[in-house]
Nucleic acid binder design. Structure first.
Length: 859
DNA sequence: GCAAGGTC
């Protein structure tokens, strides 16, 4: 009988490697692919089999709207709730789907080793889809491996207990994806367009909304409001002092503090008049400070932020790296309880020879270690623990600090509790009670490895019950209540966790999101302080529909999709039900938006008032205003139109020239830096490319530089095929780019460092430096079809005989010009270009060819 | 240009 073939798929390459190593006992061969494929022979369900283990890289697909709904201008956000959605490959370049389909060929069995959570279950079905195992062929079997660690024994155990993938859990994730997409995108598009169209100084390109990010922002703003509405109150504290055995000691008042000065003063008088304290009680109490339970992701992130000063994003990246290097266990887990099978001895043993922790660990191994405190078992992965001993020189500084914490926490969980004796001495004077307390540690326990949690020793002088002591002074301290501080990042993480917002893996992303959108700023001590924009948004939701920014919005979604996961409700029924509710909220929100707008009006400046007059509108011939805050744009107050500009550069009026197509005055845009391009553009054409096909013709430009060009990634003059305009690619283009399919165009404002740049890539060519003027002519080289340029050399530096300055020629064929040309980025282009240019070359737009790409390329 | 969830 032919050998069976078994395909196994993990969620990420590192897990595929662990699985293959465990099942093959290290005897596998590995070949490269979209992700590595490990192969070996073994026994599968009693038969000889050939195993192939590979992986995906997280989700294979993500949801989006079909292209018809992608245009913000043409889609009513309300329609998004009922729009179809499509699943497309998350990372098309990785070709994961093709990879899986190829590897599945000839395999009779598929074993799914995705992470054991809902998302993993959903990815199982993505894999099934890609491999073609869903077509019901009875002989092709699908199995699900359930494992909670990548230890060999756990993998072997999972292999012996294969189950079926859980379709309901996968459907719950489908439901969440659709709800999150539709709700988030609809609200985001609506409020972005509404407010960006009205205010000039909103300092965020996108005014986003999301069921996780918005409640997270809500926490920060809530605290801000508590701070701003806080009213300090004065209070008074009575503080008697005594001198006992030569030490001065301040006693605490049983009443703590009083908010009435007269009453406090009265008590002070009573105490002073008495003047003698009597020791009324001395008590001792054994106190216990519990060791920690296992470390989960959220707690790791909190410690990283509050004690190590690492933001969650960075902490996760470091933890991930420590994990892939094998130093710590899987860092994404909700569980704080160790599984019953957990090998404490093995884990401790791994650290036995560690120079930093070896001593602590060996003591635990010989004296016996504690069973960890009970935690919660979320059923995902065990708590985060060290896996392998590391020393300081093996890791970079930050990674070492994080690793140290993981070790300390783990050792702490199996160490004894900390025990101490608390002594309280109580006094009476003038009818009032006071006390002082001392602490003495009897068992350091886990605090020896986590010293920052240690109990402070506080010694008290000796006292006898009934002893009488003279008061040395009685102070009436006046204090004032202080407002709470802004939430620290670590507190925000706690709140998110408590309210079920985000997952261990995504909490960091949401916090990052509200920072990037300029809703909050991270200030000293990693405090999250909301900005004017963040505050205005939340106050706006609060006055229209507070649900929108409350954490319950997430719990509601989670609770609904859990019904799907548990098989209690049908997937599409739940999706329709939830979307219906959000659609209603959305309609109401739009209707009430003016209430929110009133808050924006008070905080931000209307478009019409912001910016400075820069260039004339081609429609009304009045000046338009330049708004420099992102997104940079022009605003015509008369036509009430906004024209977006390329971002992250400077913009100027271009010699009061105007576009022959629409009469708008031209602008010149310059990217920063000595090598930043400068190019003219017409604000109207940039937003509304006038020539059909320019979009597709220059598709490469559109996608490759969209980051720089910003909104619309529109059509600057260097892409314009206008046949006669002086600024189009037809007039300014010189020759084909040696690097790509673009065209080298003259940078019109590059004097005196004249240069050509490619209109599609970063290729840069220096022309004769210091020239007075360089311009393109209408002539072209008879040999290579390159545009003839005219150079007006500087009188002092002219290379021409007799001090002549004017010179006309082809930069490729003319010896003199060619010797003065230098390629900055890109290959030497002389020979190649000559070869490519010869004979065919470019025709000018005015002539037979209007398509600049065809005329410049096509060699 | 948009969400949240994987992972890199």
């Amino acid at each position: 009988m032919a050998q069976q073939k078994v395909l196994m798929v993990a969620e990420k390459p590192s897990i595929a490697l662990s699985i293959a190593s465990a099942l093959s006992r290290g005897q596998m061969s590995t070949r490269r692919g979209s992700t590595d494929v490990h192969e070996f022979d073994g026994i599968f369900r009693g038969f000889q089999a050939r195993f192939k283990v590979t992986s995906v890289i997280g989700h294979v697909f993500s949801v989006d709207f079909p292209s018809k709904f992608q245009d913000w201008g043409k889609t009513n956000p309300l329609d998004l709730f009922d729009a179809p959605i499509t699943k497309t490959e998350s990372n098309p370049k990785a070709h994961i789907c093709r990879h899986l389909s190829q590897e599945a060929r000839g395999c009779g069995h598929l074993v799914l080793w995705l992470d054991c959570d809902r998302e993993g279950e959903n990815i199982c079905f993505e894999v099934i889809e890609c491999t073609g195992f869903h077509t019901k062929e009875p002989r092709r079997m699908v199995y699900r491996a359930r494992f909670s660690s990548v230890l060999d024994k756990d993998i072997l155990k999972a292999m012996d207990n294969l189950v079926e993938p859980n379709g309901d859990e996968a459907l719950a994730v489908d439901a969440r994806q659709e709800i999150d997409l539709k709700v988030g995108v609809a609200f985001t598009r609506f409020q972005t367009t509404y407010f960006q169209g009205k205010y000039g100084n909103l300092d965020s390109r996108v005014i986003s909304y999301g069921p996780c990010q918005t409640p997270t922002l809500g926490f920060c703003v809530q605290r801000h409001l508590q701070i701003t509405t806080f009213k300090p109150e004065k209070f008074w504290v009575l503080r008697p002092y005594i001198i006992q055995n030569g030490y001065e000691l301040q006693l605490e008042w049983e009443r703590n503090k009083l908010f009435d000065e007269d009453v406090a003063t009265m008590f002070q008088k009573l105490v002073m008049e008495d003047g003698i304290l009597e020791v009324t009680e001395i008590s001792e109490k054994q106190e216990n400070k519990s060791r920690p339970s296992g470390l989960n992701t959220v707690n790791l992130l909190k410690v990283a932020s509050s004690a190590l000063g690492f933001g969650p994003q960075m902490a996760m990246q470091m933890a991930e790296r420590l994990y892939t290097q094998g130093f710590i266990s899987y860092p994404r887990t909700e569980s704080t309880a160790y599984p019953s099978s957990f090998e404490f001895k093995g884990t401790l043993g791994a650290l036995a020879n560690n120079p930093t922790y070896g001593n602590d660990v060996q003591r635990l191994l010989t004296d016996g270690f504690q069973k960890p405190r009970v935690g919660t078992d979320a059923g995902d992965h065990p708590p985060i623990t060290p896996m392998r001993s590391a020393t300081e020189d093996m890791l970079d500084r930050d990674a070492w600090r994080l690793y140290q914490y993981v070790c300390q926490h783990f050792i702490g969980t199996v160490s004894p509790d900390c025990k101490y004796v608390r002594t309280k001495v109580e006094f009476s004077i003038g009818g009032e009670s006071f006390h002082c307390t001392g602490q003495h540690v009897t068992v350091e326990g886990f605090t020896s490895v986590m010293p920052w949690l240690g109990v402070n020793e506080r010694n008290l002088p000796r006292f006898m019950k009934g002893e009488k002591i003279e008061v040395s002074k009685v102070e009436l301290y006046e204090g004032s209540t202080i407002s709470p501080d802004y939430l620290s990042e670590s507190e925000v993480i706690s709140l998110m966790e408590k309210n079920g917002i985000g997952t261990d893996a995504s909490i960091a992303v949401h916090i990052n999101n509200i920072c990037e959108r300029n809703y909050v700023q991270v200030q000293a001590g990693r405090k999250l302080v909301p900005t004017a924009l963040g505050i205005t948004l939340i106050r706006g939701y609060q006055c229209i529909d507070p649900d929108l920014c409350l954490p319950d919005i997430r719990s509601f979604i989670e609770q609904q999709i859990t019904l799907v996961a548990n098989g209690q409700m049908n997937h599409s029924h739940v999706v329709q039900h939830v979307l219906q509710q959000f659609k209603q909220k959305f309609t109401y929100f739009i209707k009430q938006i003016e209430n929110m707008d009133a808050l924006f009006e008070a905080q931000f400046s209307p478009l019409a008032d912001s910016g400075r007059a820069l260039s004339k509108c081609g429609k009304c011939l009045r000046y338009m205003k330049y708004i420099s805050v992102q997104p940079a744009r022009m605003y015509c107050g008369t036509c009430e139109e906004v024209y977006y500009l390329p971002q992250k550069g400077t913009i100027k009026l271009y010699k009061e020239l105007s576009c022959p197509l629409d009469n708008f005055e031209l602008l010149i845009f310059s990217l920063p830096g000595p090598e930043g391009k400068s190019f003219p553009l017409c604000p109207y054409c940039y937003n509304n490319p006038p020539f059909e096909g320019v979009d597709t013709l220059f598709g490469a430009v559109k996608s490759s530089t969209s980051g720089k060009l910003g909104k619309g990634a529109g059509m600057p003059c260097f892409l314009c095929p206008h046949p006669t305009c002086r600024h189009s690619v037809i007039a300014q283009g010189v020759c084909a780019c040696p690097e790509c399919s673009g065209t080298l165009v003259l940078d019109p404002v590059s004097a005196p460092k004249w240069r050509l740049y490619c209109n599609m890539c970063s290729c840069l060519v220096f022309l004769p430096q210091g020239a007075h003027r360089i311009s393109t002519t209408r002539e072209r080289c008879p040999d290579c079809d390159t545009t003839i340029i005219e150079v007006d050399f500087n009188k002092k530096t002219t290379p021409l005989e007799d001090g002549a300055t004017l010179y006309v020629g082809c930069i490729l064929c003319d010896e003199l010009l060619h010797s003065l040309v230098e390629v900055k980025h890109g290959k030497s282009f002389s020979r190649r270009m000559r070869g490519r240019g010869a004979g065919r070359g470019r025709g000018r737009g005015g002539g037979k060819r209007v398509d600049p790409k065809m005329s410049f390329r096509d060699f």
